[in-house]
Amino acid sequence: MLWIKAFHIIAVITWFAALFYLPRLFVYHAMSKDKISIERFKIMQRKLYRGIMTPSMILAVALGTWMVVDAWEIYQTQVWLHAKLTLIVSLIVYHFYCGHLMQIFKQDKNTRSDIFYRWFNEFPVLILIAIVILVVVKPF
């Protein structure tokens, strides 16, 4: 089970790296005015989302599910875990919303400013902080 946990942590780190970087690309894309930069950001966003972000999410969720199912008798009464799982669901929604925003950029239909995306980029930071506190401190 330690191998599963190790690969789960690796997948989570990779997923979060992409969750931090894709919205930052949205910031720069929203600020871009020239065609070359706009097209470059579209390619970067697509490759990050499809090549790193989504596979990392799938692996992190699959391995996390494996660990929870394997020890369900222990975890079913742990309130901190249920709170963590709720945060993970919100993170998955955020992930797919990033995919939606990427499609808007792809179609050149973005109407939001770089400031919106700067604030949007903070959501996964807050989720990460909450999840780490729940897992390490187990406050309830």
Rank of each mutant, 00 (worst) to 15 (best):
W119M: 11
V79T: 14
H100M: 02
I127V: 15
I9V: 15
I92Q: 00
E73S: 15
I10H: 01
R112P: 06
E73G: 09
W66P: 04
I115P: 00
L134N: 03
R40T: 12
I13P: 01
A60T: 03
S113I: 06
I129F: 11
A11M: 06
K35P: 01
W72T: 03
L134T: 07
Q103A: 13
I127M: 13
L91K: 02
W119S: 08
R112S: 11
L25R: 03
Q76D: 03
P55Q: 01
V137P: 07
K106Y: 10
Y49T: 01
D108F: 02
V12A: 09
W3E: 11
V125T: 14
L91I: 08
L134D: 06
Y117M: 11
N121L: 08
M31Y: 01
F96G: 02
Q107F: 04
R118E: 12
T54Y: 08
I88W: 09
A17S: 12
I88L: 12
I10M: 09
I74N: 13
H95L: 02
Y117N: 10
M67F: 02
Y21I: 09
I74L: 15
L63H: 05
K84Y: 00
T14P: 06
F120I: 02
N121A: 15
L59F: 10
W15C: 01
L134W: 06
V27A: 04
L128F: 14
I127D: 08
S37Q: 14
W80V: 03
I74C: 11
Y75D: 10
Y28L: 12
K33D: 13
K47R: 15
L59Y: 04
Y49V: 01
M102F: 05
W3H: 10
H82T: 06
A18G: 09
A60C: 00
F41V: 05
M53N: 08
F96C: 08
I131M: 07
L63N: 05
F116K: 00
L87Q: 06
V68A: 14
I104Y: 00
S56I: 04
M44F: 13
Q76E: 12
S37A: 13
I131T: 02
V79Y: 12
D70Q: 13
Y117C: 08
W72S: 00
M57C: 07
K33T: 13
N110V: 03
L128A: 15
A11T: 00
H82W: 15
Y28I: 00
